[in-house]
Structures are given as C-alpha cells and as structure tokens.
Design a protein around this nucleic acid. Sequence first.
DNA 1: ATAGGGGTTCCATCTGCTGGAAGGTCAATA
DNA 2: TATTGACCTTCCAGCAGATGGAACCCCTAT
Lengths: 131, 131
Amino acid sequence: MNIGDVASVSGLPAKTIRYYEDIGLVSPLRSANGYRTFRESDVHKLAFLGRARALGFTIENCRNLLKLYADTDRASAEVKQIAEEHLQQIDHKIGELTEMRATLAHLVDACAGDHRPNCPILADLAMARQG
Amino acid sequence: MNIGDVASVSGLPAKTIRYYEDIGLVSPLRSANGYRTFRESDVHKLAFLGRARALGFTIENCRNLLKLYADTDRASAEVKQIAEEHLQQIDHKIGELTEMRATLAHLVDACAGDHRPNCPILADLAMARQG
DNA sequence: ATAGGGGTTCCATCTGCTGGAAGGTCAATA
DNA sequence: TATTGACCTTCCAGCAGATGGAACCCCTAT
C-alpha cells in the first residue's frame, strides 16, 4: 500500500503519516522507487494512532500505548494508569475551560453590544475583577 | 519601572513581557543603559493582556481588544462579537473534551487494571468501535 | 511527448511562549 | 577598588504536532 491509500483508509493525512514515520511511530518498508510501502501491520498501527490521538493522548502516550499493545504480556494496569492520568488531565482542562466560559459568558451577557462605546468586557479586562 | 518590577506587578514572566514587545503588543521606552522602562500605561496594557490571555483569548484577539480598548469611540458590538466567537470556541472545545472524557472513562472503567494482559482500552484503540 | 496524479525530500511556519548562553549594568560590600 | 550578585540585554534553540510549499522524481494513459 502506498501512502495515499493508507491516508484514505486510516483517515490520517499523508503529511501526518510521514511525520509519524519521522518520529519513529511507524516504519514502513520502501519499494525500489523509494515509495513507502505499508504492510497491514503498519496500517493497523496508524489506525491505532489515529484513535489514540482522537482521544487526546499525547504522542508520547501513543508511543507507550503502542509498546504495551505490542507486548502481549503487559499488565493491563500499566495501560489503565496511562489512561487514568490522561483522564485527569482532560478533567483539568474541562475545569479550566468551564471557568473561563462562566466568566466570559457573564461579561458577554453584561455587554449591550450596540453602537455605544461603553463595554463591560473591556472594563473587566482593564482592571482587576472585584468579585 | 524595570521589567522585573513589571513582571511581579503584572504576574507575567519577564520572558513573556519581552515576547509581547517583540510581537508589538507593548512598546516600553528604553533608558540610557538599554533597559526597558515601562510607563503606567504599559503596565496597564500588560495587565490587560494577562487577563485576556487568562480568559483564553488568542494573541490576535488580544491585539484587537487592545485596539478597541484604546479607541474610546468603538462600538461595544465589536468587542462583544470577539467575545462571543471566543465563547463559541470554548464551548466547542469543552464539547470535544467532554466526548473524549466519556469514551475514555468508559474504557478505564472496563479495564481491570491488574497484572493480566487483557485490556479493553487497547482493544478499543486497536479496532474501530462498534457502538 | 506530454499531462496528470501519484510519490519524494527538505525547509519554513504556526501558537505562545520558555530555556539557556554570553555578556552588559548597577548597588553594595569586603 | 575589586568583586560579588542580582539585575538587565540579545540571540538562538526548542516544545507539540503537525501543516504548507517548493522542487523534484515516477508512472500510466493518451
């Protein structure tokens, strides 16, 4: 399989697949003309990567998950730990965003949004909030 | 005021303040020895930036907000629009993260997390989810 | 032969900083 | 006066995770 086919099968852009090879996540063969040749196992790995990335795992997480996946003797505890840590980070981010959202929604609400210059959003940004 | 003082007053690292000068967000004066000299207005701007960034506004957003802030004839509608767009993006991100969280939490739940190799998390990553 | 649709490499760019090296400046102290 | 130490300066590199583009090769069909 050439990179274009793999791209459409896996849903990952060709550029991304090359990048993943660059950083050692996947190692396709090369045919005589220099084209990358992907085995089933490579395609499989890339699909794995696509899903892990879609769940927000970092590249380093992915590297470890792939390693654990390849090791049929792994303890599921190791995988679970990675996932749990990631889950915590997601929760953390959601928390931050939710706080931002609340403040911002409050300000947007307070702003008339008309032709007049008076604007509570700018007023808030310009000086420390009191409450 | 020298950069260190501004850093402690504004809460922004000196590095960040220099960076903000680099990209034209703030333009402190220079004293004879080459040190940056920040006026009250610069400090004010930096505090503004700090708060806008804390609300997740991009640098480009900040640039525009500062411009609007400086323009006492602005229409609050312009500010509100920037804020509303940003709010939508925050909502979008929260949505994505919440979906990720749900999937991941489900998987983490399903994984025994013991010494045995069997792992639903890896199983899921390895093949398309069915539902 | 030529046009097109693949593929290849390499380098630059994006966001928003952050770290570090190499060096200048200033106030206080030994 | 010399020197320490805390400042400050510039510049260059790097982080994640790609993505865009230039310049070029390859292969098939017309």
